[in-house]
Amino acid sequence: MTEQLAKAPAVGDVLPAIEIPITLQRLVMEAGANRDFSLMHHDSAVAQSAGASAAFANTFFLMGMFERLVRNWAGSRIRFKKIGPLKMLNFNVVGDTLLFRGKVVAIDEVERGEKWLLNLWCESERGQTTTCMVEVIKE
């Protein structure tokens, strides 16, 4: 359930982390839902030929999980202004348990409220796999 922030955020605030296991079933559900049917995202043999150890999560899944991380923390009264740069540093493969984390790095006044700059990342057992900056507007 998405809660609303109890108090105004401050630079340095840490977002509550989200843990999610990557299974082949989840990747297949994700492909059906986001329409990225590239084989490497649901066929481990193809993914291995590309250098991954197994089928790996696609960009849209990662972007959506970062959106979930922010919504879970900030609630429904913010609007996404920008997601990215989203940088893929390593594969997020079947068998991994991913941890999505983030923190507030800047708060600026804008014409119609505040702009919050968030530094987000995803970790697996192999360390940081993905980084992502996000800007949201709170009117």
Binding site: M1, T2, I20, R26, L27, M29, E30, A33, F61, G64, M65, E67, R68, R71, N72, S76
Partner: peptide
Amino acid sequence: EPKEFDCAI
């Protein structure tokens, strides 16, 4: 669904 993403909006 696959992201277990629960947000009522």
